[in-house]
Amino acid sequence: MLFSRIQIFMLGLMTITLVPLTTLALEPQLPTDAGEQQAWIVNDYRYEQGSPQDDPDMGLYLCGTRCNAMTSDYRNVIDPGGWELIRVAENKELIVELNNKLIGGHCICIADEYIVKVSEFNRPEKSN
């Protein structure tokens, strides 16, 4: 046996006290009803004009904003704890409409596809 009961008890107490005093948590219960979610991390982008009158520089600029907005910040996945990002595809080309009456055309966002799911490793029943 690696640890005696007393050591395990002490370890438990340490865990409690190591958490900031105000965040002493109840037993975690990861919400599984959230299911798997799709997430993207964008590597590149380009703009495709709708007509020759569309300003390519402004179009590219707006596509930069639009495509970068798709990127998930990994801290939003990691910080809550118990979730993982799994890459399922690389450099997918996604067509994204600008939805802007002042300029036509659309964006091509080149992105890696991920799914966000509950981490099996961190499930409470597995970690106990």
Binding site: A25, Q29, P31, Q37, N76, D79, P80
Partner: peptide, 13 residues
């Protein structure tokens, strides 16, 4: 909101 759901566990504490 679909990303915030991951923080539910924190708020529920």
């Amino acid at each position: 909101p679909h990303e915030e759901i991951r923080f539910d566990i924190t708020a529920r504490k």
